[in-house]
Amino acid sequence: MDEDRALIRTVDLTKYYGRHRAVEGLNFAVYGGEIFGFLGPNGAGKTTTMKMIVGLLRPTRGQAFVAGHDVVREPVAAKSVIGYVPEEPHLYAKLSGREFLRFVGDLYNMPADQVNRRADELLRLFDLDEAADSLIDSYSHGMRQKTAVAAALMHDPRVLVLDEPTAGLDPRSARLIKDILRQMAGRGTAVFLSTHIMEIAERMCDRIGIINAGQLVAIGTMEELRAMSAGQASLEDIFLSLTGGPEYAEIAEVLR
């Protein structure tokens, strides 16, 4: 694929927390119109990578480009095309859902009339219109998660970065988000999502990257991954053989 279409590109992206290595030398690209799945065991560095791409963490070394803009050097240009859903949906507890979405619309410099219309649309879409005027304080975890996704969609971003977007959602809401992401990708948006659900990765993602202990161990389409780890049929097996899991003997020992 040609480099010009890359909406997210990382060059030797590295992050150390003090002396602890979280992410080391990541090089990959996510193109417009595709859904890129980011897999890896707990603590592998997925959240850290995403935070660097959206400009929440400064890389120790290397660069991240979003729509051609260096996130560190031209943060405003890069951030204005990103929609981001964090791992934990911390939102202003003392705003109502509607107020929060309008606030996000203002932050992304949207025209005033569009802000109102878009907020109402999204609230209806995510089945939040009942709760739209009560404070986020009173929302359940899933409702907060949906509010965070809605906020990320407010300004119709060209790049979506989602850290486990379906965690804690009911099947209907999870399905809704999957459908939305598919449509967004169909319209040319680059979707970069991390997940622990193999079914999502296998069925939805055009390409998959697997990160282990801070380093990218595999990247490619399902077919390419299968070819790489000869013989393994399911993504789960590929994932486990690449990232290493406990042997059966150990499991038996623990459950003795």
Partner: peptide, 25 residues
């Protein structure tokens, strides 16, 4: 909706409004 002020960028005005709401509540 409280109207936007013409000479302030919407994000700035949005944060000011948001902060007043949060502080008050």
């Amino acid at each position: 909706r409280v109207g936007r002020l013409p000479f302030l960028p919407p994000p700035v005005w949005g944060i000011v409004l948001k902060d007043f709401r949060v502080l008050r509540r």
